[in-house]
């Protein structure tokens, strides 16, 4: 690890100011990406602005109207174990329980995951797949306008995510096929149905990060069932290809995981007795 200056602001405004003023500043939230990257000397921020002193202010899970609002510093384990999330958006609790390992889930935060926008991470699929709203110190973004490619988002350099609002869906499901080494998503598909709006969001597979599959969404509009997706595929172009799987394999898995995510969504919905 290279030397760096460590800052621990005690208020959100102070944190924003620091990010605006300090050279090469990085936010430390859960540290599950930043710290290993720094230890490997792949990142060398001059200043690290640690949000953990204001974690309480930025954490929490609340049902507000027809949305679940989650503070940016909320740890994955808290989302996975939240009764509110399990009751109203079981797919999101399920997804949070699949992130990394127990150590990662007890440190990693939802805000950190979305801001990092790792192309293999789970949360971007949930945000895009539910049409979440990402609130920041400067305003808010719809998920459709937030993710801008590999590790890129709409966030400005001195902008901090404060909370994420997930609209409740009538049905939602997630299916993750793990990379056996990293346990990140080789392919993860999040599906949701809210009124007439159907969303299918894919993480892990695309060479430009999380994306939606319009053809699958169209097909599911007729009937929200795995059968509706049978025979449908997506082209291999634009898929990642590496030692863990070819573009063709990933494209194929998108179909498989989407069908299974729909099944899971229907099961979750049945479990709630809503459908």
């Amino acid at each position: 690890m290279y030397n760096f200056a460590f800052h621990r602001p005690t208020g959100l405004r102070q944190a924003s100011n620091m990010l605006g003023k300090l050279e090469e500043a990085k936010i430390l939230a859960g540290g599950q990406t930043l710290i290993p990257t720094m230890k490997l000397r792949l990142a060398s921020p001059g200043n690290v602005v640690d949000l953990n002193a204001i974690a309480d202010e930025l954490s929490g899970i609340e049902l507000k109207g027809r949305s679940i609002v989650i503070g940016a510093m909320t740890r994955h384990a808290d989302v996975a174990n939240s009764d509110v999330v399990k009751q109203h958006l079981p797919a999101l609790a399920y997804l949070a329980g699949l992130v990394g390992d127990p150590a990662v889930r007890h440190r990693g935060t939802i805000g950190g995951s979305l801001a990092n926008n790792d192309p293999n991470a789970d949360y971007p699929a949930a945000a895009l797949g539910l049409g979440a709203t990402i609130h920041t110190t400067k305003g808010k973004y719809e998920a459709d306008n937030f993710f801008k490619g590999l590790f890129e988002t709409a966030l400005g350099a001195d902008e901090i995510i404060t909370k994420v609002s997930f609209p409740l869906a009538k049905k939602a499901g997630y299916e993750k096929f793990r990379n056996q080494a990293s346990r990140f998503a080789l392919v993860g598909v999040f599906v949701s149905k809210r009124g007439s709006e159907i969303r299918v969001a894919v993480t892990g597979a695309g060479s430009n990060g999380v994306f939606r599959v319009a053809s699958f969404e169209e097909a599911l509009k007729k009937r929200f069932a795995p059968k509706s997706l049978e025979g449908l595929t997506i082209p291999a172009t634009g898929m990642n290809s590496d030692i863990h799987g070819s573009a063709e394999y990933r494209a194929h898995l998108v179909g498989v995981m989407a069908r299974r995510a729909v099944t899971r969504a229907n099961e979750f919905a049945a479990g709630e007795g809503e459908d």
Partner: peptide, 16 residues
């Protein structure tokens, strides 16, 4: 070495 870390080199895990 493409598989130079546990991100790419898969180890057997108890739950496998």
């Amino acid at each position: 070495l493409v598989t130079g870390s546990y991100m790419d080199y898969a180890m057997p895990r108890a739950d496998y």
